[in-house]
């Protein structure tokens, strides 16, 4: 079984600060990490490797520095890493990105037939969750998003049974290989990297592919040209309220009584709801 995991290197968004005057992102010192949601996808793939001895390829697109993220994935136990990197990809939005990744996957598939593609549910920088589904559509793969659990895989019959999260509960879904699944977070955390894998990852070659290596001849589908969306403006969020009116200098009970009066005055319906409990 050949499993490809799509990963992305992202700035750790929890450590990003916005410059108070210019409203621009201060990237200095913000570490680049492997997108945390991708780790859940990687762990699911590693579980398949444990159970079926699957071959795992990690694929990413980004600048050359993204090699570090792929090496990280190798240290957890992936077998092969490919980084799609070319100036022609710069400025790609999700549609153009899915085009490039789909092309690379076709190439990978021609050497070693792909059974499953995994992706995280979204990245923490773009937060769109659109690339995985886009790739599936371009390749005609069965698309299973927000997969919580893979219940069963019958590799002989190419059948798969999964639980996927919907808004109101869980859908029990059967489908067929090859398919693309986006994996929900929070169920199985990534394992620790083993020492042999860490040593192997440090030495293993990460294949760097340019657009020609991925078999992309038409540059109108990638980069800025292949991106229907453009960014009009970027700005820091402004709040219409605040700074807060501070209440202080009284005993907690007095402060709370004043606060409650204020709340009830503005929202008498909330007061009514509270007093309903008299019943």
């Amino acid at each position: 079984m050949h499993v490809v995991i799509l990963v992305k290197q992202v700035p750790d968004s929890s450590q990003i600060r916005v410059h108070p005057q210019t409203g621009t992102i201060m990237r200095q010192g913000v570490p680049a990490i492997l997108n945390p949601y991708d780790l859940f996808a990687l762990e699911k793939a590693l579980e398949l490797k444990d159970a079926y001895g699957s071959f795992l390829t990690v694929l990413s697109m980004g600048p050359l520095q993204a090699e570090a993220a792929l090496r990280k994935a190798l240290s957890y136990g992936a077998d092969e890493a490919i980084l799609l990197s070319d100036r022609a990809f710069a400025g790609s939005d999700t549609l153009a990105t899915s085009y490039a990744l789909a092309a690379a996957l076709k190439k990978i598939d021609s050497c070693r037939k792909i059974d499953i593609v995994f992706a995280g549910k979204q990245t923490i920088d773009g937060d769109t969750g659109q690339v995985g589904p886009g790739v599936a559509r371009r390749l005609g793969l069965q698309l299973l998003t927000y997969v919580q659990e893979i219940k069963h895989i019958d590799y002989e019959k190419k059948k798969v049974l999964v639980h996927r999260k919907s808004e109101k509960g869980i859908q029990v879904v059967s489908s067929q290989l090859p398919c693309l699944m986006t994996i929900l977070d929070g169920h199985s955390a990534i394992r620790y990297a083993s020492l042999p894998n860490m040593i192997r990852a440090a030495k293993a070659p990460v294949k760097i592919w340019n657009r020609m290596d991925a078999g992309i001849e038409d540059i109108s589908k990638i980069g800025l040209k292949g991106s229907p969306t453009v960014v009009g403006k970027v700005f820091a969020p402004q709040s219409s309220r605040g700074p807060a009116e501070m209440m202080e200098g009284e005993e907690p009970e007095v402060l709370c009584s004043i606060l409650l009066e204020k709340l009830f005055k503005k929202y008498p319906e909330v007061e009514k709801e509270v007093l309903q409990q008299v019943r």
């Binding site: 605040g242 807060a244 501070m246 005993e251 907690p252 009970e253 402060l255 709370c256 606060l259 409650l260």
Partner: peptide
Amino acid sequence: PIFDYADIGIVGDFLEIIPAMIRVVKNKI
């Protein structure tokens, strides 16, 4: 930073303030 975009702010230990609030609401009821 939350005080920059809240309407009302109270600086203090929630372990004092929340129980006080609970008592005030109960008294009111």
